[in-house]
């Protein structure tokens, strides 16, 4: 759970308040980072003996693309007014966000081993008042897009050019509020707002298609006035291209449906809903880390 870059960035953070996060363009480097995030996630959830590994692992390439390439942000200045905003609407994916924040230098790597412990800033679901870089507190599904929409509106009112990204789960698209917000953002033509749907096809009790099918999900977003794209959510190059298209799309918000695999990267977790909200045992952590070496 270490990244030689993080301490260096932390050290620099003290020296310069204007340091922006590294913009990494090498795909190999980004893929290496994605693997690091996966190791962080498995390790911290294993240590906490509690958490949601499946839906954290499925978001890794999305978070890697945003935090290490696409977003304009300053880990040394989390409240920089011109930062791009990221809202993890699927708050149970917190370990992935915590890893991305630690690896970019928002807080010390050591925090990761305190996940879900009494007194830790790293709550089970993200808390904006405890963790630098957590843009908004989430955990009750369906609320993040409304908040992101409010932030996108604020940018327009203040004539600032920051962008707002909201990461939703596909299961979360069953919540009515998601569509209230989608309708609003479409009507108000909020082109500074981008939704990423982590479409891993699973929810807590099983497969989405058997519990409450969302198909056709892209058509739904389109019908609500959004430019809609579909990508392989584990292909960083596809994600970067889609995010670039979102940035250049004017007059409408963009929804990127990222098809993912729940538990991605750990063979025995992939598409295994047992690991929706269950931590791996120490043996399973060891096996997972071997696979992610």
């Amino acid at each position: 759970m270490s990244n030689p870059q993080a301490p260096a960035q932390l050290a620099k953070a003290g020296a310069s308040a204007s340091l922006e996060a590294a913009h990494i363009s090498s795909l190999e480097e980004l893929e290496r980072i994605a693997k690091t995030l996966r190791r962080d996630i498995v390790t911290m959830i294993g240590r906490a003996a509690s958490g949601h590994p499946g839906g954290s692992l499925s978001t890794v390439e999305i978070l890697t693309s945003l935090f290490f390439n696409v977003m304009r942000h300053r880990p040394s200045e989390p409240k920089w007014p011109d930062r791009d905003r990221f809202i993890l609407s699927k708050g149970h994916g917190a370990p992935a966000l915590y890893s991305a924040l630690a690896e970019t230098g928002y807080f010390p790597m050591e925090w990761l081993s305190t996940l879900r412990r009494l007194g830790s800033p790293l709550q089970g679901h993200p808390d904006m008042n405890r963790v630098p870089g957590v843009e908004f507190s989430t955990g009750s599904l369906g609320q993040g897009l409304s908040v992101a929409t409010g932030m996108a509106l604020a940018a327009r009112m203040d004539k600032r050019d920051y962008r707002v990204y909201a990461l939703l789960s596909d299961g979360e698209c069953q919540e009515g509020q998601t569509w209230e917000a989608a309708m609003f953002a479409g009507h108000h033509e909020l082109d500074n707002l981008t939704v990423m749907v982590d479409a891993n096809g699973c929810q807590l009790d099983g497969f989405i298609c058997s519990i409450l099918d969302l198909d056709p999900l892209p058509a739904k977003w389109k019908a609500f006035g959004w430019h809609t794209l579909e990508v392989d959510g584990h292909s960083i190059s596809e994600l970067l291209a889609a995010l670039e298209e979102a940035r250049s799309t004017k007059g409408v918000p963009t929804a990127i449906i990222a098809h993912t695999i729940k538990g991605k990267g750990v063979s025995f977790m992939e598409n295994n809903n047992e690991f929706h909200g269950k931590a791996p045992s120490p043996e399973q952590v060891a096996r997972a880390l071997e696979e992610l070496a």
């Binding site: 908040v147 992101a148 409010g150 509020q177």
Partner: peptide
């Protein structure tokens, strides 16, 4: 939610 986003 929008109120919260604007306030934030």
């Amino acid at each position: 939610g929008i109120a919260a986003g604007l306030a934030a």
